[in-house]
Design a binder for these strands. Structure first.
Length: 213
DNA sequence: CGCATTTGACCTGCGC
DNA sequence: GCGCAGGTCAAATGCG
């Protein structure tokens, strides 16, 4: 399948960046009190993915509030943003992951109701971190873990917990350098970043108050 | 008690 | 057609 995503050794030939991926959230720099220079660097970098605007409209998925305070030295950047062909009509996600309950019929890596393929945006990047789970502002539920070939580290599968959101992400440590975590996002969030909105709430309230005058 | 995680089983696509 | 590998489901379990 997506061979470029398989195996740590085959990561696309994009050079490692000296900074983590540009953060979408304006809160990122405030959270990242340990590495303000990096926050500045994010502003300079032209993000290969669109940034989350501070509004309530559906936003392109991206690592919005990654906690970069973790001790990484060489971050990693998104080597690619691509349209990857995936099965469109998998029978999970939209149903809230509940499935039909028929274990023999409802399971499967890909949908059974058709072979039509569609494209989902994928964003992948490397980060050097001790934490596998990066705080990107969204809530994720782990739904699987799998040992992958040519890697001693398992790959974890997460799905956004938002009921109407079908964004998924995979997290795996590189075999060559276990200090590096490769995170692959698939799909686009159709809801605002929870933490971002949480943080912006006071500001919005204030703006609302001021707008009365 | 509700939600998240773990984990074995199962399904599909692909290469040979 | 067969086997392998990746991806997902869902019951069991853990945790706050």
């Amino acid at each position: 399948m997506d061979d470029h995503l398989h195996g740590d050794d085959t990561f696309p030939c994009f050079p490692y960046f000296s900074t983590p991926p540009p953060l979408a959230s304006p809160l990122a720099s405030s959270d990242d009190q340990h590495s303000p220079p990096l926050a500045a660097a994010f502003q300079l970098a032209s993000p290969p993915w669109p940034c989350n605007p501070p509004d309530l409209s559906p936003q392109p998925m991206l690592p919005a509030m990654v906690d970069w305070s973790s001790p990484f030295q060489t971050g990693l950047a998104v080597p690619w943003e691509e349209e990857t062909t995936v099965q469109a009509d998998r029978n999970y996600g939209e149903e809230g992951g509940s499935g039909s309950g028929d274990k023999l019929n409802a399971k499967g890596a890909t949908g059974r109701s058709g072979k039509k393929k569609t494209s989902k945006p994928r964003f992948a990047f490397h980060t050097r971190s001790e934490n596998d789970i990066l705080d990107d502002g969204y809530r994720w539920r782990k739904y699987g873990q799998k040992a992958v070939k040519n890697s001693c580290n398992p790959r974890s599968y997460y799905r956004c917990t938002h009921p109407t959101c079908n964004v998924k992400k995979q997290v795996q440590r590189l075999a060559k350098d276990t200090g590096i975590v490769m995170t692959t996002y698939e799909g686009v969030h159709n809801h605002p970043c929870e933490k971002l909105m949480e943080a912006l709430a006071p500001i919005l309230k204030q703006l609302q108050f001021l707008s009365q005058f």
